[in-house]
């Protein structure tokens, strides 16, 4: 049996019919078609599918579509304003914080939620705040640097 939900993704309202077992990740990638949000493990272990739900970073693979009914979701596609990147995005580019890029969407979303909640997050808070987002390429060093530099307004 399908259920009707209404969710707002990157400012647009979507009325959707979903199965009870479908996840927010399925909704975003398969029903709405924003493939910037990545699936890495479907178990909430890697953070590749991180999106911001009502201001909180969540693993979208662990949120049922039905639980997301009525919520406001921001995905990586909703970060830039036209050609203007979000400062966290800009900082990832400038600091060489991207390699294969598969974790990048989740990292950017988690970092943004972190800085929105704690604009003065120190390095320990950043390291701790991103521990749920795995990266196998970069060794995190440049990612942490990118978040620090976004925090300090070093990118415009």
């Amino acid at each position: 049996m399908k259920h009707q939900i209404e969710i707002t993704v990157n400012g647009d309202a979507h009325h959707l019919l979903v199965e009870a077992h479908q996840t927010l990740l399925d909704v975003i990638r398969d029903l709405i078609g924003f493939t910037g949000t990545k699936s890495g493990c479907e178990m909430g272990e890697c953070g590749a599918c991180t999106v911001v739900m009502n201001g909180d970073a969540v693993n979208s693979c662990l949120v049922l579509a039905l639980e997301a009914d009525g919520t406001e979701i921001r995905t990586i596609e909703g970060m830039a304003q036209g050609d203007k990147l979000h400062p966290v995005q800009e900082s990832f580019v400038e600091n060489g914080a991207i390699q294969c890029g598969y974790c990048t969407s989740g990292m950017v979303m988690a970092s943004t939620a972190l800085l929105d909640k704690n604009p003065k997050a120190d390095i320990e808070a950043i390291r701790k705040g991103l521990r749920g987002n795995l990266c196998r390429c970069t060794g995190y060093t440049k990612i942490i640097k990118a978040v620090e530099s976004a925090r300090d307004g070093e990118v415009t």
Binding site: F34, V93, G101
Partner: peptide
């Protein structure tokens, strides 16, 4: 490819 990757494109 930084721009494509950081915007999810």
């Amino acid at each position: 490819d930084a721009l494509e990757k950081v915007t999810g494109a």
